[in-house]
Amino acid sequence: MANVTMTVNGKSVSKPAEGRTLLVEFLRDGAGLTGTHVGCDTSQCGACVVHVDGKAVKSCTMLAAQADGAQVTTIEGLASGGELHPMQAAFREHHGLQCGFCTPGMIMAAVDMVNRLGAPLDEAAIRAELEGNICRCTGYHNIVKAIAAASETMAGMKTAAE
């Protein structure tokens, strides 16, 4: 087995992995980061979404070896210094989660969405952009509200930083 090395949430992780080892398996079993979930076999549910080199990808549809040398951010790496990311805070504030299983992928997808499209995001855009993430509990209503609210916050933070 070859060694696969990547930077996960700012820390270098190097582990032996089979060729077939998926990125999500590397993260869960290799790096012990079980926040990233597997909810389907066909690359549709989005429970496994992480950021690779700044872009949202489905970690169940990527070999660990493909991410060799990459910068990976998982749900565990989103909050910084004990401070929740605005998207995490918005999911709690707006009750955008129930069982919590789709939540990590949902939040990672939502952060990527705002990063790509900017803010504010309207309901139709958010719903369309959530095509790759399935939630069975919330009916999406509050997820959409949470993302819209967080997009405003993130835009405000960006403006403040400039």
């Binding site: 690359s43 979404v49 990808v57 489905k58 549809t61 952009e129 095509e131």
Partner: peptide
Amino acid sequence: IGDPHVRHM
């Protein structure tokens, strides 16, 4: 095509 995550790959 696909969804945003698929389009990244």
